[in-house]
């Protein structure tokens, strides 16, 4: 088993007065895919957004508890959220490329972080990011055309390339395939098995089959609580909790 990359302890999340997560503690391992499953509104996306502090954006949202990456508390006051997000990338449910060219979409991150020193560096980052996202061959002739003109699956891989461009260690994926057709989904899943060699991946998914296909560990959330977390094999073949059993056999959710 790989070493622990992310460790969440006793996470409570509140939206105003409403509590969305209850005392969630979970470890996620380096260079593995961890899947978070559960019915809608169970808090799995909220938990995911705690890892790169995207919840900070929401005024009324407050997070209690402790999340550490490589032993560093990311909610510590000395942590700059911008540098945290440089090492924890995120891919969203709906592909959200910037309404700019494909090249600009990927060059944006490296440029604001000052990663590339020259135009050639930047060109190289754009190319390798696209290659890692398995998109380069499809778009190499039209790098300067709008990213919004690509198909849904290509747009999502463009967003993955954008996340990769700033050399993150962790990539968070929030239902990345829910807006895609099965073929595009298959491509992204293949891509994930490639990416996990280099990155730690946390994926929220609605599809239990997807979780079973891509992940090594799976956490099951229900009504804001983490019901069970174990290796994907165990969760799907021999879950320890009755609720997990009911969910994966399709009795609810």
């Amino acid at each position: 088993m790989n070493k622990i990359k992310i460790s969440a302890k006793n996470i409570d999340v509140f939206y105003g007065d409403k509590q969305a997560l209850f005392d969630v503690s979970m470890d996620m391992y380096e260079k593995e895919v961890t899947a978070l499953i559960g019915p809608s509104g169970c808090g799995k996306s909220t938990f995911l957004r705690c890892i790169n502090r995207m919840n900070d954006v929401i005024d009324i949202c407050s997070v209690k508890g402790n999340v550490s990456i490589d032993g560093h508390d990311i909610y510590d006051k000395s942590i700059r959220v911008e540098s945290l997000r440089e090492s924890v990338g995120m891919v969203f449910q709906k592909p959200n490329p910037f309404p700019k060219s494909i090249y600009e979409n990927i060059a944006y991150g490296p440029r604001i972080h000052g990663i590339a020193n020259s135009k050639t560096d930047l060109d190289e980052i754009v190319e390798t990011s696209l290659q890692k996202a398995a998109l380069f061959d499809e778009v190499k002739d039209r790098l300067h055309q709008p990213g919004t003109g690509l198909s849904g699956g290509q747009q999502q891989r463009l967003c993955i390339a954008r996340a990769i461009s700033v050399n993150p260690e962790i990539i968070l994926m929030d239902e990345p395939c829910s807006a895609l057709d099965p073929i595009a989904t298959a491509k992204i899943e293949d891509l994930m098995s490639e990416l996990k060699k280099e990155f730690t991946i946390i994926i929220v998914t609605h599809s239990m089959q997807q979780a079973a296909r891509v992940s090594k560990n799976t956490g099951f959330f229900h009504l804001g609580k983490l019901i069970e977390v174990d290796s994907t094999d165990t969760i799907f073949s021999n879950p320890g909790n009755q609720k997990t059993q009911d969910y994966i056999t399709g009795r609810f959710g």
Partner: peptide
């Protein structure tokens, strides 16, 4: 301007001002 554009910029580590000035205001 859809919030996903702001989130996209913030998620690659842009500061709030960068997300607003580079992406939201031009749109």
């Amino acid at each position: 301007v859809p919030p996903s554009i702001r989130e996209g910029a913030l998620a690659v580590g842009a500061t709030k001002m960068q997300a607003v000035m580079h992406h939201v205001v031009p749109l």
